[in-house]
Design a protein around this nucleic acid. Structure first.
Length: 611
DNA sequence: TGCCAAATGGTGGGC
DNA sequence: CCATTTGGCA
């Protein structure tokens, strides 16, 4: 493998990096924390840095890079960007995974080395305890004074082994998870704590980990929990690991779910990291960036104004607060305005309606008006059976079945063909250089697609036909192969939840689709305006963002001192590439006066909403 | 029926 | 964390 000298290495797939990103990329003598605001290209930066370390041999074989994200989407996305730029030998040394996949891997490989009595059996199960279950534990064990939130927090914050003074409820909870059901149930915070203990007790495992990974990337660092932070210390203290942490404190909206309030500051201090702020905003144009800065300064008076690197391509107001008198006026006005924009050539997919919470209720309120104007709304939080649409679209089952259906619905589709082929290779364990195997697989796929096309041509898309077609695709892959390939599908009920959701959503979309291609487009949400919460919109971007409900009823606690509420508002605003509008309804309690006065000097005013 | 305290739900994520 | 709903009791 030919290596590139560091001095002549160039970023790939982009024109250039901003000077600060270059600095952060080349700083490999010590850890860095890269604070990067909205649209700064955090993931792209990590992908470039990974590529740089691999291609220059600064991370030499067989050493590896560990990249840790919170969401599977983010981990996959980062891995794909490195794969696109590096040959397999190099990309194969970039381990991009979620924090939970990382820790679970240790339990699975070294569970016997976890001290008694907490050494899990091989058939332990992952537990996602609901509030009801936690409440049931507390009541049935007579811990009436302890509330669920405290118990949850203590599980996540208390190191093993449990010290003498530790609260009895916590001790009893650990015990119950191991002894009170037919199997052992471990939640991810518990797994985190078990691995922390494992690594402290076993210097050999720790040293092996440190020898493997001289470089560690940490994405969305502002969302790090106490347990995760402790684990980083345990795993890498005393090593010469170089960390690259990226994130944005202004987008910290997960505090209620256990994120540390000061992850970046503590990281800087504990790991002697150099702080490098990125300043470019590749997403939004100058006029929006100027307004964003007004909010940013309110969150952090030290915030630097970002440099807008996107062009403005719309006329008129780019930000405003739209006032309506009633819910009906608001729904009609919004629907008519969106319909007009779509007529003007904006892709519905590029428009998003964001809400703070209760997306399902808002869907009900808007549905009739939008339908009247022929606008399709996709509420990504809506449940199909027992799974939300957004989760269903990210499932492996969907990734494997959908390309097959696409191939059945279209004549030529190299992209779907490639993914179908790659999926089959993976599922059947065929190596890229096994030419006989490849050939056989190719032929099987060809035969199946030919049959599927014939069948789809004879069937009009409707509910029943959709179920038949989905079943054909599943049978071609093989339920048992699918369930063996993905641990998440091992339990019958977990597999059924996803499979039923898939078939139901396809049936639903086929029912009012003109063609199979149209049904699949609708399945994926193309040609639809997305409706989602701010939390779900994190990391996404839209040409036009409409925030529904900037009134006191929904933002009851948006005040200057409640930083996390203001951060939520900032996250929503910064999703917009071109335009950001907020609606409010006087019937619902009127404007949040405080935010209005903050935005007024930036030129964002309350106006009558389009009718 | 009306009052108050307690319970519940919502902003999310992971193999 | 806050708002809304519930249920116990007068």
């Amino acid at each position: 493998m030919k290596l590139v000298p560091p001095d002549s290495w160039r970023p790939q797939g982009v024109d250039d990096l901003e000077p600060r990103a270059w600095e952060a990329l080349q700083e490999n003598g010590r850890s860095v924390c890269v604070t990067a605001g909205a649209g700064a290209g955090k993931t792209e930066f990590l992908a470039q840095k990974g590529t740089y370390l691999l291609q220059t041999g600064i991370c030499p074989a067989p050493k590896r890079i560990l990249a840790i994200s919170f969401k599977r989407d983010a981990a996959r996305n980062l891995a794909e960007r490195v794969e696109k730029r590096c040959p397999p030998e190099q990309a194969g040394r970039f381990d991009s995974m979620t924090f939970d996949a990382f820790t679970k891997g240790f339990v699975d490989r070294f569970r016997a080395a976890i001290p008694a009595p907490f050494s899990p059996p091989p058939n332990y199960r992952i537990d996602f305890p609901t509030r009801q279950q936690l409440q049931h534990f507390l009541t049935s064990h007579n811990y009436h004074g302890v509330n669920i939130a405290t118990l949850e927090r203590n599980v996540a914050r208390t190191r093993l082994p449990l010290a003498d003074g530790v609260e009895n409820a916590l001790r009893a909870y650990w015990h119950a998870q191991y002894t009170e059901k037919d199997e052992v149930f471990l939640s991810f915070p518990m797994i985190n704590r078990l691995v922390d203990w494992l690594l402290r007790e076993n210097p050999d495992i720790r040293r092996a980990l440190q020898a493997t990974y001289p470089f560690v990337f940490l994405d969305e660092f502002q969302d790090t929990t106490y347990a995760q932070f402790d684990l980083l210390h345990t795993a890498f203290d005393g090593s010469s690991a170089i960390f690259t942490a990226v994130g944005d404190d202004k987008q910290r909206i997960m505090g209620w779910a256990g994120a540390m309030p000061d992850a970046f500051a503590r990281f800087e201090a504990d790991f002697d990291a150099r702080r490098i702020p990125l300043v470019s905003n590749w997403r939004s144009h100058e006029d929006l960036v100027r307004i964003q800065h007004v909010i940013a300064k309110r969150i952090d008076p030290q915030a630097e104004q970002a440099e807008a690197r996107a062009d403005r391509n719309v006329d008129g107001d780019v930000a405003a607060i739209w006032q309506y008198e009633s819910n009906e006026n608001e729904a009609d006005g919004l629907a008519a305005w969106i319909a007009g924009e779509i007529d003007n050539g904006i892709d519905p997919h590029e428009i998003a309606i964001l809400v703070r919470m209760h997306a399902n209720d808002v869907e009900q309120v808007l549905a009739a008006s939008l339908t009247q104007h022929d606008v399709k709304l996709r509420n990504v939080a809506r449940n199909i059976g027992n799974i939300a649409i957004q989760d269903l679209l990210g499932e492996e089952l969907t990734a494997i079945l959908l390309p097959l259906l696409r191939l059945g619905a279209t004549i030529k589709n190299p992209i779907s063909w490639n993914s179908a082929q790659r999926n089959l290779q993976f599922l059947e364990g065929i190596y890229p250089h096994d030419e006989v195997g490849q050939q056989r697989l190719q032929q099987r796929l060809q035969t199946f697609i030919r049959e599927l096309r014939t069948e789809m041509n004879t069937l009009e898309p409707d509910n029943d036909a959709a179920r038949t077609i989905a079943r054909r695709a599943l049978d071609f892959i093989g339920t048992s192969i699918l369930r063996r390939a993905f641990p998440g599908y091992r339990r019958q009920q977990d597999f059924d939840r996803v499979w039923t959701g898939f078939a139901d959503l396809l049936a639903e979309t086929a029912d009012d689709a003109a063609s199979w291609a149209d049904a699949i487009d609708q399945f994926e949400g193309l040609d639809q305006v997305a409706l989602m919460t701010i939390h779900k919109s994190k990391g996404l971007e839209f040409h036009t963002m409409i925030f529904y409900g900037l009134d006191n009823q929904t933002w009851w606690s948006l005040t200057p001192n409640r930083i996390e509420e203001l951060n939520s508002f900032f996250v929503a605003f910064t999703r917009a590439e071109q335009r950001a509008f907020f609606t409010l309804c006087t019937n619902r309690g009127g404007p949040v006066a405080w935010i209005e006065s903050l935005l007024a000097p930036a030129g964002v005013h309350r106006v009558a909403g389009p009718a």
